[in-house]
Nucleic acid binder design. Structure first.
Lengths: 216, 216, 216, 216
DNA sequence: AATGAATGAGCTTTCATTCAT
DNA sequence: TATGAATGAAAGCTCATTCAT
């Protein structure tokens, strides 16, 4: 009798580590957005990525490190997007830059539900996780510094009195975060357009020569 | 049949259910603030409360229901505090009420680290937990309605032009949430006083006859 | 997120799922026989199988499903054993088949203490567990149909008067179950041989041309 | 201020221990029949009895002892019912006694679903619980002895040849148990009437002068 | 590099039992 | 006697992590 042993075929395609890491981070974002932080398991993430269970520990050592990498990715993405605007040679005028900043903060890319959900998922854990807090904080500081300097330029240009660039920047950042929260929590009552109107109004009040009040 | 082989021997003291429920909710707030949502276990909570493991299921049926009761408690506390101000007979003038609202939103009671941490912990999970989202949303709607009506009175009184009470209210709420986030994430760079200044400035810009710009 | 602080270190050996399932079902039978249904825990079963706690949920999803698989295994084993006799080409004569059936029903393999204990354990729970009842019932129906048809052939051949194959089959099945119970409950007073004598006598009375009364 | 302390009224009616014990045993039978052995909890039983949680330990010391008392109650009830027939002065003829025995074994009182369910629940656990096994066994021995003596009288009276009272009695007992099982497991396919026919036929075959074959 | 069966600590939940009232 | 809030051991189940393949 001839024994024909059929080996179970396993697909094994070696990909550069960076591709795998990205794939897993993307899957993590999807899972956190869909199921929340506490229901995001390694099994879910790897299934979402179409990969095997063990792969996370191969590329990230632990779940914790995958989460940190995910947060860092999101934060970096936001900060670099913002930095690009501020250093852009397209928008040279201060007013243009501020407007571009507003556009960016309410662009579909930044206000995508899953991205916002991930931000708040991490903020929710930040109090008790020094590493998360540190990353969030670093991102905040970078954002704040960049914006403050831009606003300072506007204040100098416009000769606005009694306005502190620092206060304005902190207020703007807080307002953005709060509006994102509303977009996430109450998508029915709250639209991106409405959120942008509110933020625009905030800046128009403070820097009337640079930003016009929202249309309708 | 569950085999219970050893007779437990310990202290005992019956308390009215309401006392126990409160005790457990308080412990839950402490644990979420200290350890985060995902590290908040029944063992932690009951240990914090100085009670036995089984007590949560006795008084709340499940962990999920304890968490929901906790969220509801926090939300109710905030909303009723706010309501008290708006219907208060102490502050009769609109301007006084707005000022009282500001005071309330940045009072130590409301901005206690643990309370804020709990808010954000739940917001972080809200996207994927309909019940959390519903409670948060209901609280938001109540807050929004109350504030909008107050701002409308101010607008009518002051004869302010081109201001929408709805936009102002939504902006105020968002700003408050964002400032709370900063108080939570970056307590070093951010103080309660500074947060209040920013919020005051926001309202002073819109309702100059009712609210004065912050002092320093 | 579940906090797993300690790295587990142990032996490992992957087996095809079928092997593991069989292994676990065997261990379940042993445990139910030894400790009874209500003292059969996952820890006991996995320890008996020499495997880890988590393995049952990996291969059966839940304890309930393991128990159902166990019942089904036992039932299938009995039914297929019986079927083999009835369709066997070795015993062609009806009388031979009936005798083979008797031999089978009191064979060491079928009347093994642990198998009987498992039958009765499930019967004891069947009233309140629709799934158990369904499996037991389906097995019963199959058994009954097979035996009835065999007895009908005997009745036709022997020209026995006033005997209903249906009644005879139901009686035989009931008698077998009752004798098994006695073998289980009172092994001291009751032997396999004695049980078989009683069953043989029952059939010899009804089908004298096919079955001879027991020896002594 | 006058403090009026309303004491919560608690109904406390001291009943003779025997009444309480009976109440609890009845509730236990109901629960086992409804939910099965492994889902029968003290909470269920006491709720069914309309009493407080702690009462079982007051009257029975432990759950185990309540279960044993329940089994003993059921067994005693059966045995004493049977004894009453055998020693009855109403049925003096042996044939009458045997008929009365058959009537009793398939009376609604004995074949009540809940009673049968309890029997099988205990039989299911008997293998691993010496106490259960002992009670079941003792009941069996009593039954067997009583029946054997009755059958012996019939054999002597009828001058039946080649029949052992012992074998007949053991067979009868086993058949009864098996028929009860069918009544429990397959109430759709199996009726009390049908079961009684089968048992009657069994005895009619062995003791034709005493028992007539079943009607239809 | 990649897989996924296997592990076992830790989770939520259940429930027999205790005991202050 | 009787109550029922409280206890805590043990249950079933989850899931991050390991490692033979």
């Amino acid at each position: 009798m001839t024994e024909v042993l059929v080996q179970p075929l396993r697909k094994r395609r070696a990909e550069p580590p960076e591709v795998r890491r990205e794939q897993l981070i993307t899957a993590t974002i999807t899972c956190i957005a869909r199921n929340g932080m506490s229901a995001t398991t390694m099994a879910e993430v790897t299934k979402e990525a179409g990969l095997s269970q063990g792969i996370v520990n191969l590329h990230f050592e632990s779940k914790e490190k995958l989460l940190i990498a995910t947060l860092r990715t999101i934060a970096d993405e936001y900060n670099s997007g913002q930095q690009k605007i501020l250093t852009s040679s397209v928008h040279t005028a201060v007013a243009d830059k501020i407007q571009a900043l507003l556009d960016f903060d309410f662009s579909p890319r930044v206000t995508r539900k899953d991205k916002l959900a991930v931000w708040f998922a991490f903020w929710g854990e930040a109090k008790s996780r020094p590493t998360y807090q540190h990353i969030c904080s670093a991102s905040d500081i970078a954002t704040d510094a960049a914006i403050r300097s831009l606003f300072q330029q506007a204040i100098d240009e416009g000769g606005y009195r009694g306005i502190s660039a620092e206060l304005l920047a902190q207020g703007y950042t807080a307002l953005i975060d709060g509006l994102w929260l509303d977009l996430l929590i109450a998508p029915r009552r709250f639209t991106r357009k409405r959120a942008k109107q509110i933020a625009t109004l905030y800046l128009a009040n403070a820097l009337p020569q640079h930003i016009e009040p929202p249309g309708d």
